[in-house]
Simulated scan of single mutants.
Amino acid sequence: MIGSLNGTALTSPELERLLLLLDREPALRGAALGCFADSGLPGAFDRLQDIALHDPDPALRELAAARLEGRAGDETFRLLDAMMADPSPAVRERAARSMAARGEAGADLLKSLAGGGPSQKQKLARRHLLLSGS
């Protein structure tokens, strides 16, 4: 949950102000990724997804993949799947590692990708299935 300095949860208007600040100060986006991953507020996951898929900094996209490791839900699986096609090898690797760490559900998705046609995703899926022992 995104919280204010006094420990209370941010309201939607406060989140909107935070998002505007992040647009103006790109260096703060990395610090906010964990908050976006954990928040249930409308727009928080959308912002995380936007950074994960479109930020020009591959290190930030890789950090987004790492932040998704502990997050449940179909939208997380879809995002990690999309990130496994990122132009950056480091981002693809981190997304596959986060997917493998999702337990049985992550292993099932990696297995479905590993069985597909030859592709970068297939190679990543196979490698991380082997690494995770699934």
Results as ranks from 00 to 15, higher is better:
residue 66 A to V: 07
residue 73 G to L: 03
residue 38 D to A: 15
residue 54 H to G: 09
residue 73 G to Q: 04
residue 61 R to E: 03
residue 38 D to H: 12
residue 59 A to P: 00
residue 64 A to E: 12
residue 39 S to W: 10
residue 69 E to T: 14
residue 47 R to K: 03
residue 60 L to Q: 00
residue 53 L to E: 15
residue 42 P to G: 03
residue 67 R to E: 15
residue 74 D to A: 08
residue 52 A to S: 09
residue 35 C to P: 06
residue 69 E to I: 00
residue 53 L to T: 15
residue 41 L to P: 13
residue 43 G to F: 07
residue 52 A to N: 06
residue 42 P to I: 01
residue 74 D to C: 03
residue 41 L to G: 08
residue 68 L to M: 11
residue 54 H to Y: 07
residue 35 C to L: 13
residue 40 G to W: 02
residue 43 G to D: 13
residue 72 A to L: 05
residue 76 T to W: 00
residue 60 L to M: 08
residue 58 P to E: 11
residue 37 A to K: 01
residue 52 A to K: 05
residue 42 P to H: 04
residue 65 A to Q: 00
residue 48 L to D: 14
residue 64 A to W: 11
residue 56 P to L: 01
residue 64 A to T: 04
residue 42 P to N: 04
residue 64 A to Y: 13
residue 70 G to C: 07
residue 70 G to D: 13
residue 66 A to K: 10
residue 46 D to S: 12
residue 49 Q to I: 08
residue 36 F to P: 14
residue 69 E to K: 11
residue 69 E to P: 06
residue 49 Q to G: 14
residue 71 R to C: 06
residue 56 P to N: 01
residue 40 G to A: 14
residue 37 A to H: 07
residue 49 Q to H: 13
residue 75 E to C: 05
residue 51 I to D: 08
residue 56 P to V: 02
residue 46 D to L: 09
residue 40 G to E: 15
residue 54 H to T: 10
residue 51 I to K: 04
residue 45 F to T: 05
residue 37 A to T: 08
residue 40 G to F: 01
residue 39 S to M: 14
residue 47 R to N: 04
residue 61 R to K: 05
residue 66 A to S: 14
residue 56 P to D: 02
residue 48 L to K: 11
residue 62 E to S: 15
residue 37 A to N: 08
residue 36 F to E: 13
residue 61 R to Y: 03
residue 72 A to V: 04
residue 42 P to W: 00
residue 42 P to E: 09
residue 67 R to V: 01
residue 70 G to L: 04
residue 61 R to L: 02
residue 61 R to I: 00
residue 64 A to G: 06
residue 61 R to S: 01
residue 71 R to E: 05
residue 48 L to T: 03
residue 73 G to P: 05
residue 65 A to C: 04
residue 41 L to T: 08
residue 66 A to H: 12
residue 35 C to I: 06
residue 57 D to H: 04
residue 55 D to E: 12
residue 49 Q to E: 15
residue 49 Q to P: 12
residue 47 R to H: 01
residue 52 A to I: 07
residue 46 D to C: 04
residue 56 P to M: 00
residue 73 G to R: 02
residue 76 T to N: 02
residue 47 R to T: 09
residue 68 L to N: 03
residue 72 A to K: 05
residue 62 E to K: 15
residue 54 H to S: 12
residue 37 A to Q: 10
residue 57 D to R: 03
residue 55 D to P: 09
residue 48 L to P: 13
residue 37 A to R: 03
residue 62 E to C: 15
residue 48 L to W: 10
residue 66 A to P: 00
residue 68 L to R: 02
residue 42 P to T: 02
residue 68 L to V: 02
residue 70 G to V: 04
residue 53 L to C: 14
residue 72 A to E: 10
residue 62 E to H: 08
residue 70 G to A: 12
